[in-house]
Amino acid sequence: MEWMAWTLPTAIFFGCIAALLITFTILAIKYPETPRVGILRIETTRGDRLFITLLGSAFINIAWLGIVGDHQPYALLVCLAYAAAVFRWV
């Protein structure tokens, strides 16, 4: 695994992603749901909303880095608020 150049922060990052995917898979099996239509006027399931959250969070972090350029952990707070909004209204 040395060739993959692992670091602790990236391992934690991928660990979180893996944990999210496992959690949502278990949720989908235990509590199946029907898709719903939110403010984007498209049908979404929990999995879709997770994808929208993760993709949006990546762009929020990049935008924060480009515009604010400092205090990167605060971008995560914005991502959490964004995630809550996506799961509530999308």
Binding site: E2, M4, A5, T7, P9, T10, F14
Partner: peptide, 18 residues
């Protein structure tokens, strides 16, 4: 892709040193 993420937060001058 995971390797690319790992590379993106590091610098290397070759010889597999990061």
């Amino acid at each position: 892709l995971m390797t690319v993420v790992n590379y993106s937060v590091q610098d290397s001058f070759g010889n597999n040193e990061f």
